[in-house]
Design a protein around this nucleic acid. Structure first.
Length: 431
RNA sequence: UCCGCGAUAGCUCAAUGGUAGAGCAUUCGGCUGUUAACCGAAGGGUUGUAGGUUCGAAUCCUACUCGCGGAGCCA
């Protein structure tokens, strides 16, 4: 195996090297041919001069098709005219797999065509950049929690019933036990983890069978959900803002090249530093009214409302204390106003909408039992969850962050479908 | 489920009732520094499906299929 990669070439100027990769694009001009090689770590312009080569090699450099697999040998040169600043003065070319008629040409394509060819689309430079940013975000998320004594606590993906009782779930037969459902959230299980290990986080795929057809929705998406014992809503918000700052600043530091490829305006990301603004639901409603919206108190914010609110700030904004009626049954009520839930949503700037939803959880047994009954949920299915309030109950809080929405925001994309290798949407489950 | 928009060459699109076109891709030719290179030529079509109106339909009408955006729901 040849371990030399394009990203490391700056340390090999003047040396003759052999690189393995694929033909990304090529251009020719009479007695000189340019072949752009990609290997997953970068792009390298390989120059074939007719005078320096035997005729067969020169002709082959012109004939080789896009995405052919090749070995190129030549001397590394610093060259300001080349993309990336370095190029290869090619001496030899070995085509190990000749590709013809590669469907994704270096011109515009529509999203439907590209999604049909998603297994090939992931080779293009934009997609490579997005998926590298995704990887870095995932690592930053893990590092953040690992460094703060959170333990990874994996919840089940097959569950016996709806976690929150509202969403439509994917259903699958489960032996003699009736039906199982694909999880829509690991949170309830994370609460069990927090009361066992103190601080935990779940990180895995979740599923929603809602027929949502928007640029912010997938049916299968990844979510990270930290949960802390002995933490109230303020502690939860402290964690959320430190977390967002860490993730965004880490990506800015480590993914500058990728963000440049994506032409992301990073000025707006640099603002993501503590403290993040905290406003109450009431204050958010005031903002909407001031801007001429006919929003009525008690409703949940729609996508357009979220954009109006977030426009008031140059960084993510935390909106807390929502009407309890529009929030989940497990959220603790505000002791100062029983109509409000101790919930917080974080709205990303630039119209990216809700990226975090969290709350302090109801920790009183009788109150929680009452809520389950009010919501007409099957009490027996929640007996284990009620046990967490029977035995060693404690104030606890947490939140969930949607990975794809976060990647979409940080990369400045117009649709979450590009943030995951193989997106699952209401009318698409292939390739 | 509801509302709006769309489907024409491999891809992106033009052609508003009168001979179906361009750019890219492919093939061939030209060019010694290209940056989605450029210049010239060639091949490439049951206009999503089914029916209707008309002398004549890509174009007008009806139904269906598929896709896109949004609402609801949510991350």
């Amino acid at each position: 195996m040849n371990d030399l990669r394009i990203k490391d070439l700056s340390a090999h100027v003047g040396e003759e090297v052999t690189l393995l990769g694929w033909v990304y694009n090529k251009r020719s001009s009479g007695k000189i041919k340019f072949l752009i090689l990609r290997d997953g770590t970068g792009y390298l312009q390989c120059v074939f001069f007719k005078g320096n080569l035997d005729e067969a090699t020169f002709n082959e450099a012109g004939a080789v098709g896009q995405e052919s697999t090749v070995e190129v040998t030549g001397a590394v040169k610093k060259e300001p005219r080349a993309p990336g600043g370095y190029e290869l003065d090619a001496k030899g070319l070995k085509v190990t797999h000749a590709t013809e008629d590669y469907p994704i040409t270096p011109k515009e394509h529509g999203p439907d065509f590209l999604l049909d060819k998603r297994h090939l689309w992931v080779r293009s430079s934009r997609q490579v950049a997005i998926l590298k940013v995704r990887h870095r975000i995932v690592k930053a998320i893990r590092d953040f929690f690992d460094e703060r004594d959170f333990s990874l606590f994996d919840p089940p993906i097959l569950t016996p019933a709806a976690c929150e009782g509202t969403s439509t779930l994917f259903e699958t037969p489960y032996f003699d036990l009736g039906n199982a459902y694909l999880t829509q959230s690991g949170q309830l299980y994370a609460e069990a983890g927090a009361l066992a290990l103190g601080k935990v986080y779940t990180f895995g795929p979740t599923f929603r069978a809602e027929k949502s057809k928007t640029r912010r929705h997938l049916t299968e998406f990844w979510m990270v959900e930290p949960e802390m014992a002995f933490a109230d809503l303020n502690d939860d918000m402290d964690l959320a803002e430190e977390f967002l700052e860490y993730v965004v600043q880490t990506v800015l530091k480590d993914c500058a090249e990728e963000l440049r490829t994506l032409e992301r305006d990073t000025a707006k990301l640099k603002n993501v530093e503590r403290p993040l603004p905290r406003i109450s639901y009431d204050e958010a409603v005031e903002i909407l009214k001031k801007k001429g919206s006919d929003f009525t108190w008690g409703d949940d914010f729609g996508g357009a409302d979220e954009t109006l609110i977030s426009e008031e700030f140059d960084k993510p904004v935390m909106v807390h204390r929502y009407p309890a009626a529009i929030k989940a049954f497990y959220m603790k009520r505000d002791p100062e106003n029983e109509k409000l839930a101790l919930a917080v949503d974080v709205l990303a700037p630039e119209g990216y909408g809700e990226i975090i939803g969290g709350s302090q959880r109801e920790d009183d047994y009788d109150t929680l039992l009452g809520r389950i009954k009010e919501h007409k949920l099957p009490v027996e299915a929640f007996e284990w969850y009620l046990d967490l309030r029977r035995y060693g109950s404690a104030p606890h809080s947490g939140f969930g962050l949607g990975l794809e929405r976060t990647v979409s925001w940080i990369c400045g994309l117009d649709h979450v479908r590009e943030t995951i290798p193989f997106p699952r949407m209401i009318y698409r489950n292939t390739p």
